[in-house]
Amino acid sequence: MTTAAKLSTTGLGASLVDRQPHSRMRVAISLIDLRASVICSTRPATIGSIANLGGVLIGIDDPKAPDVLALLEEHLRDMFASSPAESVHALDPEALTDPSITFWAARDAETGELLGVGALKQHDATMGELKSMRTSAAARGRGVASAVLAAILEECRARGVRELYLETGTQDYFAPARALYAKYGFRSRGPFADYTDDASSAYFELAL
Rank of each mutant, 00 (worst) to 15 (best):
D18C: 14
D18P: 08
Q20M: 14
P21A: 13
H22Y: 11
S23I: 13
R24E: 13
R24I: 07
M25F: 14
A28D: 07
A28N: 11
A28H: 10
I29S: 08
I29P: 01
S30I: 11
S30G: 13
S30M: 13
L31S: 05
L31M: 10
I32A: 04
D33R: 10
L34A: 12
R35P: 02
R35H: 09
R35G: 03
A36T: 09
S37I: 04
S37F: 04
V38H: 03
V38C: 00
V38I: 10
I39R: 07
I39M: 07
C40G: 03
C40Y: 00
S41W: 10
T42C: 11
R43L: 14
R43H: 13
R43V: 14
P44Y: 03
P44D: 09
P44E: 08
T46V: 11
T46K: 13
I47Y: 04
I47S: 09
I47R: 12
I47G: 05
G48F: 06
G48R: 00
S49Q: 08
S49A: 10
S49P: 11
I50C: 08
I50D: 05
A51R: 01
N52Q: 03
N52E: 04
L53C: 10
L53W: 02
V56L: 04
L57Q: 00
I58D: 02
G59D: 12
G59W: 06
G59S: 14
G59A: 12
I60T: 07
I60P: 06
D61V: 03
P63M: 09
P63F: 01
P63W: 00
P63A: 03
A65Y: 08
A65H: 06
A65T: 02
P66W: 12
P66R: 14
